[in-house]
Each structure stands twice: as C-alpha cells, then as structure tokens.
Amino acid sequence: MQDKRLKYLLVVPAVLVVFATAIWPLIDSLRLSFTVGRLTRPNFPQAYIGLENYNWAFFDEPAFWNSVTVTSIYTIVTVALTTLIALGLAMLLAPGGRLRSGVQTLLILPFAMSPALIGVSFRFMFNPEFGLFDAFFGLLFPPLADISWLSDPVLAFVVCVIADVWGWIPFLTLVLIGGLASIPRDTIEAAQVDGAGGWRVFKDVTLPQLMPVLAVVLILKAIFSLKTFDQVYMLTNGGPGTATQTLSHYIYFNGFKYGQIGYSASVAWLMVIPMLVLTYFYAKFVFRKD
C-alpha cells in the first residue's frame, strides 16, 4: 500500500475513538439541549422545544446565574492566587533561585491526589469539632476558634478556594520552574550588569521571556477552574444553600438529581462557549510557531 493512503488508515482508529467518546456525546448533548428530556419519564427525550431551555436558564432561573457568578469569582480568584503563589515559589526554586533542593520532587505530591480526596480531607480538616485547621487557627487567633467554616456561605467559598489553590500550586510551580529554567541565564546577568535591580530584572527581562509559559499556565488553570466539580461536590456539595455551587455542580444536580437532562445539556452548552475560547488561546500558545 502506498504511504499516502497508509498514513490515513493508521490514524483512523484514533479518530474513531475520539469521535465516539468526545465528538458524538458533544453533538448528542447539543440535540438534547433543544428537548424536554426527563430521565424519570418514558419516551426520553420527550419533546423538541427549540431554545426554550436556554430561555429558561437566562431569564427564569436565578440559580443558573448564581452558579455563573460563583464559577466566575471562583475562577478569577483561584487562577490569580494559584498563579501568583506558583510564580513566587518557582522563582525561589528555579535554578539559581534561593531554595533549590530536593523540594521540587515533593511538590508533585499534592497534584497526585485526586480532587475528590482533597475535598474529603479538607472537609475533615475544617471540621469545627475535630478539624486540624480549626484547632490550628483557634490556637493562633482565638476569635477563629470553633468557627463552623463550611456552614458560612463566604467561609465555605474560601475553604473551596484554599483547597483548590493548595492542590494546583505544585503542578503550576513545576511548569513555571521549567519556564524559568529555559530563560537564558546571561540575559538576566546582562540586565544586572546593565544596571537593573531585582524588580526591574524581573519586570523587563524575566517576565517577558516567561510570558508564553505563563499564558499557558493561566489558560490551563482557567479551564480547570471553570469545570471544577469533584472537589466542591465532596467538600460542600454546593452549599451552604447554593453559596459554592459551580456551573458543573449545577449541571450535575439538574441532570442527574432532578432528571432534567435536556435543561442540563443546554446549560452545559453555555459552558462550552468560554471553554472553547480558552481552548483556542491555549492551542494557539502551545502550538505557536516561533
């Protein structure tokens, strides 16, 4: 067989798998999003209703907007915090940084933990009666003793953010250490000799050269923050009330708890839009030709 035809034949299995596991569900969920699809009733999906589901989400569901707000704030806060802290740590741990040692290897451990497990363990640690953090905070700042973290809307959100940032910092730090290591050392030394102090070297020389990696980190983290589910599910289950209900959680609840598959699918498709935008930029940065 000719190489020209063989090469297409060789990728066919992979394409089929991707189609069956990603593209087909995506298309079918789009179809479902235009229907009344209730899992609990026969003849699923029951009826075609056009854009009614989208209408409902936009104009008649405060809970949808609540989850949009929660997800947006959650994404902005976790992306900003994680990236900043990871950048700081990477600066300290990078070759020539001040803390270089075997610490780097330890870093990967939190990332190796499943988000659901992180959720469970943080729930235990913030337990007001026997939680580790509760005892710790109570000792350091007595006013914080015996606070029921997860039953306060704001504090529950804070705990979600802490758990997420804690889980993500290591991986992003490692990525940024790699980025920093690839910056030619002599550009930094040239700037030092040219007369730049620490901050100016960072701002004028390090940061611009780190930008491609930093952009990938920001986008990647934004994608993962947007679709946060398992951690929130295990930690607060969206509560108290709907204070920590992210979009994914909202979609899950409507779809599988209340059986509103059609409506869930429409909300999921609303989430696809920002995801596609981010993915586009991600691909652009990762596959950019230099």
Binding site: P184, D186, T187, E189, A190, A191, Q192, V193, D194, G195, A196, G197, D204, V205, P208, Q209, M211
Partner: peptide, 18 residues
C-alpha cells in the same frame, strides 16, 4: 552588579530576545 558601573559582553551575547 548594577552599582559597580561595569559593562559586560557575554559569550552567548545575552541579548534580550523580546
């Protein structure tokens, strides 16, 4: 280094690529 008033030419030039 910034306070020593020296100028240096590096083996790999050390130019700012951006």
């Amino acid at each position: 280094p910034k306070d020593r008033d020296v100028a240096m030419v590096f083996q790999n030039y050390g130019l700012y690529p951006h």
